[in-house]
């Protein structure tokens, strides 16, 4: 049986006790998947998995708080589930986790770059072991999977779901690399270059809050301080500084909580490389607190606890 069939049968076994199970189905064209809320066995026929199933479905969990639901997660997504459980934002007993062993998902911007400009409706996608055959406007383009792999998958350390009530598929090995060239290149720039970079990218920001809404850890939803008057942290002014302030709010509230699923960057309609900020913050959190969010149950995010003697914080002399 294939991984998909295994998953379908596992979901079928548990569906009776659950409000719904969240998975993926094909979206508006063959290249795009979209979340699927499985309530009946008939819905199961539409379930898809694989490199196009990019969404982190843990994002939907808090909306179902108090109800018993199932969720299909990749390795990276499972970290978000753990973090939500650790922060008491969802109840572990209310969630049935269908864990996948994932060999990576694609990056839509990278595929877009490899296709002819304005491809429009993609007719079909055939997924092989190492390549994707994409048919658009009658022409078939073959892309190497490694070329269009999402950034997070290139450095993925948790390809298999860390927590799962049912683990499906054969276990995958973590990626060999643990840092991205683009990240290193960016960090090596001067302050002035970085400032200019953010000035420019933030001037593109339209403050649609897609990055926030896609984030599994942004649980404030309607009560985000970016859109409130009391407290009033941000004005409506759509200037680079104000847009950057919003990103700083996001980064700051995710410090020690971000599971690096990359949904913020994926959701951004103007391709702002938000993960440059997230990855850098996560690196600092790991350096100072030896903490990686959502990698184990019963962790406390580092900013909600302290040590009297901090081994890795050194007083600066005055």
């Amino acid at each position: 049986m294939s991984q998909l069939d295994d998953l379908k049968s596992a979901i079928k076994d548990r569906l009776g006790e659950l409000e719904c199970v969240i998975g993926w189905e094909q979206g508006y064209d063959a290249l795009h998947a979209t979340p699927l809320f499985i309530r009946t066995e008939a819905d199961l026929d539409r379930l898809v998995i694989g490199p196009l199933a990019v969404h982190n479905l843990a994002t939907y969990l808090t909306a179902y708080k108090g109800k018993k639901i199932g969720v299909v997660v990749k390795g990276c997504d499972s970290r978000s589930v753990i973090e939500l459980v650790n922060e008491n934002l969802v109840n572990r007993d209310d969630i049935v986790v269908f864990g996948l062993c994932c060999d990576g998902v694609v990056s839509q911007p990278k595929i877009r770059a490899a296709l002819p400009a304005d491809p429009g409706f993609v007719e079909s996608v055939t997924i092989g072991t190492d390549e994707l055959k994409i048919t658009v406007a009658g022409q078939t383009v073959t892309l190497k999977k490694s070329d269009v792999l999402a950034d997070k998958c290139r450095v993925c350390q948790h390809p298999n779901a860390i927590i799962a009530d049912v683990l499906i598929g054969t276990k995958q090995n973590p990626a060999g690399a643990n840092s991205l060239a683009c990240q290193e290149e960016f960090e090596a720039k001067s302050d002035a270059e970085k400032l200019a970079f953010w000035q420019e990218t933030m001037s593109r920001c339209i403050r649609c809050y897609a990055c926030r809404n896609a984030c599994p850890m942004c649980v404030c939803r309607d009560y985000c301080i970016a859109t409130s008057r009391d407290p009033l942290w941000l004005s409506q002014d759509n200037s680079p500084a104000e847009n950057m302030m919003f990103q700083m709010v996001h980064v700051s509230h995710l410090a020690g909580r971000c599971t690096e699923c990359g949904e913020c960057e994926r959701a951004c309609p103007v391709d702002i490389p938000l993960m440059l900020l997230r990855r850098y913050m996560n690196k600092q959190v790991k350096d100072v607190f030896e903490h990686q969010a959502g990698t184990a149950l019963d962790q406390t995010p580092p900013l909600f606890t302290f040590k009297v003697e901090e081994e890795r914080i050194h007083e600066r002399g005055w």
Partner: peptide, 8 residues
């Protein structure tokens, strides 16, 4: 530690 990535 975070500020450097912002260019500040």
């Amino acid at each position: 530690r975070f500020l450097p990535v912002t260019g500040i």
